[in-house]
Amino acid sequence: MTSTATQPAAVHAPALRPQRRPWRRIVLHGIVLLGGIAMVYPLLWMVASAFKPESDIFSDPGLLPATFTTENFTQGWDALGIPFSTFFLNSFVIAAISVLGNLLSCSLAAYAFARLDFRFKKTLFAAMLATLMLPFHVTLVPQYILFQSIDWTNTYFPLVVPKFLAVDAFFIFLMVQFMRGLPRTLDDAATVDGCGPFGVFWRIILPLMRPALAVAAIFTFIWTWNDFLGPLLYISDRELYTAPIALNAFLDSTGASSWGPMFAMSILSILPLFLVFLFAQKHLINGIATTGLK
């Protein structure tokens, strides 16, 4: 799955042979690796801290704990009287449903904006972008009142239903940009062959959009998983808490926070995100460059 971009080229064109000079690869690897270390160092520090006793976290800056303990994990796991697995599961359910909602609703809207003609198109597109530009803090209270008036507080509905209504304009715009980059000749060919707009969307556009859909899925999952304010405002039952709300339970800004368990559970909370990313990026790289247009 590596080098799909260059290898065929090299095969077709002997002229490119010099690119195979080993020292270039080594230098490239070196740069990427060095950058990688800078990227992950702070995270390694977090992992190390999770295995340190509370008192060592700030006094012992080393990456290898002087005293190794797993107590932060055992202590953190049950700190709320409910095992953390419950919160992870809750977060997972919300994030998974949100991914589904965003992929469906945003791709539909994006297709209309990118490929179809309709009245007020420009106005609606501008309105869509404008929803991105207003800081959410001022719509927070009206929105809360709205959801409360239909008795949706203390349910997941305020967190997931908007996803099925394409409220996140980021993804619409993202998909619009990707769709506009797809050759229109493909649509026309399909249309000639008798495909209606929905057929074109489903058979041509969606398959070719796989990288963009993967991006939308990754981002939706991660952003929903990490969302703090939504669950904070809408969820009251402890059994329904999501991971970030549960993580907040280690903090006490008026007293002493439990940093050790907080780090330990934070790391466990990143783990699923990392796995989702690893899984989804497979779809990211299997774009049309390797499948569609060959």
């Binding site: 963009a212 774009g287 460059a289």
Partner: peptide, 9 residues
């Protein structure tokens, strides 16, 4: 990256 993957080979 996703954009790069859409550039036809």
């Amino acid at each position: 990256l996703a954009g790069l993957r859409q550039v036809p080979q």
